[in-house]
Design a protein around this nucleic acid. Sequence first.
DNA 1: GCCAGGTCATTTTA
DNA 2: CTAAAATGACCTGG
Length: 669
Amino acid sequence: MEEGLCENSVPGSGSGLVDKTRIVEVKPLRSLAPVLPKSLQLSISGRYPSGFPPFVLFGEPVESQPSPTPIPAPIRSYRKPSDEEETPHEVNGDTSSPVEGVNGESVDDSPNRPSQPMKSCKTSQKRRKKTQDFGGSSSVGVISMAQRDDGDREVVNLVLMNFDSLRRRFCQLEDSKELNTMMGTKRPDLRATNVMTSKVFRTNMRRRVGAVPGVEIGDIFFLRMEMCHVGLHAQSMSGIDYMSVKDEFQEETVALSIVSSGVYDNDAEEEDILVYTGQGENFNKKDKHVVDQKLQRGNLALDRSTHRQNEVRVIRGLRDAVNKHAKFYVYDGLYKIQGSWIEKGKSGGGVFKYKFVRLPGQPSAFAVWKSIQKWKRGSSSRTGLILADLTTGVETIPVSLVNDVDNEKGPSFFTYSNSLRDSKPFSMVQSSYGCNCNKTCVPGDLSCSCIQRNEGDFPYIANGVLVSRRPLVHECGPMCKCFPNCKNRVSQTGLKHQMEVFKTKDRGWGLRSLDPIRAGTFICEYAGEVIDRAKVNKNGGYNDEYVFDTSRIYNSFKWNYEPSLLDEISSSSEDYTIPSPLIISSKNFGNVARYMNHSCSPNVFWQPVLYAENNQYFLHIAFFALRHIPPMAELTYDYGCSDHADGSSAPQGRKKCLCGSAKCRGSFG
DNA sequence: GCCAGGTCATTTTA
DNA sequence: CTAAAATGACCTGG
């Protein structure tokens, strides 16, 4: 019965079939439908049925590829809610509209609803009305009405994934000059926000005191907008979020959440205490005379919350002590305000101070980060440290070996290597290997043969983040004329995060990172010895725990944004196209990837990457972050299932899954 | 080349 | 409707 659990996608089937269940037929939004850039139009027009050129195109790329003179079509700016309300609705009258009827409007008596001591007043009602206005024909039917009000883990992840995928796509278009910057904002995060807002693709829009369903303590964010979209902190800039609540007799404001970014000099010495400065400039902008903060807006809400003793969510903005470029936000759970006072600020004016105390019994989040910073600075030693660098210098960043669980002194012996051995090249007749670009390949330059192979898309944005999952990513390689620092060589640049191999409680050794990892970031390649498939069959299968096998059956999943968000008709394929299976053993030789454990709801995925070396093309397996990964969270990917579909062989190689996720399939391997 | 600090455009909510 | 805001991206000068 286990077989039935992993039947969805067959890698290497090559058809690049579109998952039809994911496509919602949405009519173009009247005349305001965005004009797609050329590369997108191509894939939609059916030139390549799967949205991607067939694998065999390598030999003769020039004539079969898109014209090298792209006409950058502008993407129209996206509709805003106000436009929506003014124009009359054009009702589709079809069944594609959201499933709200099914999931029900039992909003008021939902058992999952967190207890809320105060009733929200008109603000929330107004918002809900707005939501209903949008619930009609033009919205994406993925988020139900109920989910817009109250989310859960799955919806929160769905919203974040779509938002970031859109953002990356806008970055990509911006990089390749395919976006008309006259239209709308230049900022990709705000562009993505406009799309998500106009399609009401968000959750937890009902504002609330206390925990937000689906958002967990320790979750990290890289943009303020991300927290807006999942209802953690509704303000796009302001540090204090609050709302008006009604008592029997009076109406007053209460604070819901705060973001502590370190702009004001807040005291962050103690892990469970935060002294937060009220809002308001300390000097008058015009004549620069010193002014006091006023007890209004956020300050007033914090003052009321001090008296009411309601829970306030705290988000801490953090910066790495060593690598100051890495800024992100951690949700640190619920606090209460213990007291407030007035101080003299730096410029001499009076400022409000609020003492936040963390409620006991919550999992640690900010405290974890504090510990990491201490280890990094060397001001405290890592408990259970066995080895400072198990790569013996092979990686530029050392990978430590840690066991703070039991007495095991480390995994069995192997040779650390970050390369792929005995790899079989793809035999293809090639007139040339690699591109002829000068210095670095430029996004949007369709004369670059590597970009051509990626259908005109540059697969990565400027900071090295992968834009979308695709059947195959073509990177530049050693044979390309471009310099080694070309942005299209992401998987060849080695580890970028400070990683740690650690002993798990019940699943042997595992891998985690001390640094936060942004979604789409390259983590590592799967290194090891390539195994001959014929050999494997002769010996009756491999008896090897350390194996990666592309011919296993993997659950399909969606990482790229819903095409209907941009009114695209079909989505590009996320199914891998691998001409022949690749099996890699890291038993004797391998890198950190050999320690990544399986999970049924993983935070890492693999992506085939191809580039040329020594006059031949070789396939590599690269791992990327599926979502934002908090520091110290174990890195896991889906191992898939070996093919027992014929039913003849017992699933003896299967292991009981201990991933503990809500969607656990029970076994893997 | 790195940074700190200034500036600009932008969205959110009350 | 407008203003304020603990943004984010970019530019400049030391």
